[in-house]
Amino acid sequence: MEGALIAAAVLAAATVFGLVRRRRDGVLRERRQGARRGGGDMAETLGPDELGAALGERATLLQFSSAFCAPCRATRRTLGEVAGMVDGVVHVELDAEAHLDLVRRLNVVRTPTVLVLDGAGRVVRRAAGAPRKADVIAALGTAIP
């Protein structure tokens, strides 16, 4: 009897979690400055040294991936397509494991996590989970003046 109650509670909690997660997954949002502990990532500026790759002239789509990540592949495809479509935009994919300092500093907890950087390397948008192509293009609209 107790076990059945536990099972029911787990299923209910997981359903709520799954619905919330599905709605937020891949949504590129603007973070308010200082909204997160440590000042948040909106104040963050990333340069070519940290990324190990050149920034895009107008914007950079930075993707954190890991070895055990099914949606990372679809995200790679989406961001690669957008970078190929818009001039001055590059797609940079980093293995989260090989950049744990950066992962901690930016508070990346999931893969894929996508950061949209403007031409100066400032983080202007961020998504956890695979973003939709239309949303990435819309986010670029805010990153590119």
Binding site: S66, A67, F68, E97, V103, R104, V108, V109, R110, T111
Partner: peptide
């Protein structure tokens, strides 16, 4: 969920 635990553990 198991996959996502991977990065958290590594972090």
């Amino acid at each position: 969920l198991g996959c996502e635990m991977y990065l958290l553990v590594r972090r």
